[in-house]
Simulated scan of single mutants.
Amino acid sequence: MRSIVMGLLAGALLAGCATGGANRAALQAEFNSTIPTCDSKEACDAMWEAAQLWIAKNSRLKIQTATNVLIETYGGGQNSAVLAMRATKEPAGGGKSRIVFDGGCNNMFGCVPNVFEAGVRFNKAVAATSQASP
């Protein structure tokens, strides 16, 4: 009886890992497909301002650096699951730029929130700025 229970527990744990991996891959794909792009100085400036505002409102850490190409929060402490955030404005060719979100933490079990979940929310909020512009 004990071996059956242990087998069921091991199976449940393995299924949870498999589901988590599939979810992570789907989130990563959604994140990569929604990276905001701008094609004019006005649009890029508006999106960059939205990026800084989103990080300021959604990070549990203070912004450490904010320039015309980098926004970065302080890092979390040792073993912290708090997500440190970074956004960069990168040339994409043809006069376009991409606003790219990145993040990480110092916890082997992962960050809170998950970097790809936060990245998708960031991408959608920043991209909505360009859609709201005339």
Rank of each mutant, 00 (worst) to 15 (best):
G16W: 05
T37H: 14
T65H: 08
K57W: 03
C111A: 07
Q131D: 06
S40P: 15
P113Y: 02
V5M: 11
D45P: 06
C44E: 14
R98M: 13
C111Q: 07
S40W: 07
I35R: 08
G16H: 01
I63Q: 02
V126T: 12
K62V: 04
D102K: 02
L14P: 13
N23A: 11
N123P: 01
A18H: 13
G76S: 04
N68A: 07
P91L: 03
E49A: 06
G104A: 02
I35M: 04
L13K: 11
R24V: 01
K96S: 12
V100P: 10
A81L: 04
L83A: 10
Q78Y: 00
S33K: 09
G110T: 08
A81G: 11
A15Q: 08
A128N: 10
P134W: 04
T88N: 13
I63L: 06
T34N: 08
L27D: 10
I63M: 05
A18W: 13
C111V: 08
I55W: 02
G119E: 10
A18K: 09
L14F: 14
Q64P: 00
E49V: 10
E49Y: 08
A87G: 03
L8R: 14
G11T: 11
L27Q: 04
A29Q: 14
V126F: 09
R24K: 13
G103Q: 06
A25D: 10
G95W: 00
L8S: 03
T65E: 14
T88R: 14
T88F: 05
T73R: 10
I71C: 09
Q78A: 00
S130W: 01
A118N: 14
M6W: 13
M1E: 12
F116G: 00
N114L: 09
T34G: 08
L27R: 05
A128T: 09
E117N: 12
V5L: 04
T19F: 11
K62H: 07
M108H: 10
V115F: 06
A29L: 07
S133D: 00
I63F: 08
N68V: 05
A127M: 02
G7M: 15
W54G: 01
V5D: 12
F31Y: 15
Y74V: 05
S3F: 00
A15Y: 08
A84R: 13
A46Y: 01
G94S: 06
N106R: 14
F101K: 02
A43S: 08
D102M: 01
A87I: 03
A51R: 01
A66V: 12
V126S: 09
S59G: 07
R60T: 06
G103N: 10
A56G: 09
I71G: 05
V82F: 03
E42I: 06
I63A: 07
Y74E: 05
I4W: 06
I63S: 10
N23Q: 11
G110R: 09
G94W: 12
V112M: 08
T67I: 14
I55P: 11
M108N: 14
A127L: 02
S80K: 04
V82W: 04
R24N: 06
